[in-house]
Design a protein around this nucleic acid. Structure first.
Length: 271
DNA sequence: CAGTCGCCCTGCGTGC
DNA sequence: TGCACGCAGGGCGACT
């Protein structure tokens, strides 16, 4: 489900309700996610207070005085704050009980996500330490992308979806950014000029920023921490629009598959 | 090292 | 109505 805008929307939604909250208990109803839920999570976090809720790429970092919870939402994960006594839904796998009443619930039907505990700096965790740059940070610029792209023969779409290069760009926003930049998704990365890298960087930043403002994209089951959908779906120009006319030139939007993921693009506007 | 592919899992829409 | 199939917002790890 979630790419950077959806994770950021989730983060912003839960942060004000979690910071300063003491965790009274943690229950894992299903430990088998992409990796098992950390065995020490419940005992280590109990009695601790959440100090911050931050994000690195698509990872959420819930820092307490004793260590941090690292959460990844995978394809279908979500976090929701619920009042006391609300019945558990199917696929609610982990629940953090809060001293002021209520709880934070992690739900993930496909179980591709993660709920891990680390007593150390979460940014040093093996899954996080080698991540690429944040797309909305100054370090993500034309020089950076071009210098990497020049050495790679993969399709540019797969390059911008590679978390070791730049984090947070998933299948929806990759297609959307390439369309805005006029770049064909299958073009070899090394065949992108610096000028076109610059356009692509701008497009990625713009599409992610706009999506964050809209509260993310709800295709079917993404909801923010309070249960509300995101509104960026109405702004999608190519994703999921195979056969429909291009908003710019009217040609039919094409669908193809790259790296086992669907890609949508305009064969006339994107080169 | 870079690139490709299989796979983890459940749910939903489509077509027979 | 039921069933088989393909596809879905991600990313790791094994292989070439």
């Amino acid at each position: 489900m979630p790419e950077l805008p959806e994770v950021e929307t989730t983060r912003a939604g839960i942060e004000p309700h979690l910071v300063g909250e003491v965790v009274t208990a943690v229950k894992a109803y299903q430990r088998q996610l992409r990796r098992p839920v950390s065995a020490r999570l419940a005992t280590a976090l109990k009695g601790g207070m959440f100090e911050s809720v931050t994000r690195r790429g698509k990872y959420l970092l819930l820092k307490s005085g004793r260590g941090s919870v690292i959460i990844h939402l995978g394809m279908s994960g979500s976090l929701r704050l619920v009042a006391e006594g609300v019945v558990l839904e199917k696929h609610d796998h982990v629940e953090f009980f809060l001293a002021s009443g209520g709880s934070l619930r992690y739900r993930d039907p496909r179980r591709f996500g993660l709920v891990l505990w680390t007593a150390k700096d979460p940014l040093q965790h093996p899954l996080i330490a080698k991540l690429g740059v944040e797309p909305l940070a100054a370090a993500f610029d034309a020089d950076y992308l071009h210098s990497i792209a020049q050495q790679r023969s993969v399709a540019i779409k797969q390059l911008i979806m590679n978390g070791q290069v730049v984090v947070g760009v998933g299948n929806i926003y990759a297609s959307e950014a390439l369309f805005r930049a006029g770049v064909h998704p299958a073009r070899a990365a090394k065949r992108l000029s610096r000028a076109r890298c610059e356009r692509l960087v701008s497009a990625i930043r713009a599409v992610l920023s706009e999506a964050i403002k809209q509260g993310g994209t709800t295709l079917r089951d993404f909801y923010n921490g309070a249960g509300e959908p995101g509104y960026f779906k109405q702004r999608l120009q190519v994703y999921g629009r195979g056969g429909e006319p291009c908003v710019s030139c009217g040609a039919a939007i094409r669908q193809t598959v790259q790296g086992q993921r669907s890609t949508w693009y305009c064969g006339r506007c994107q080169r």
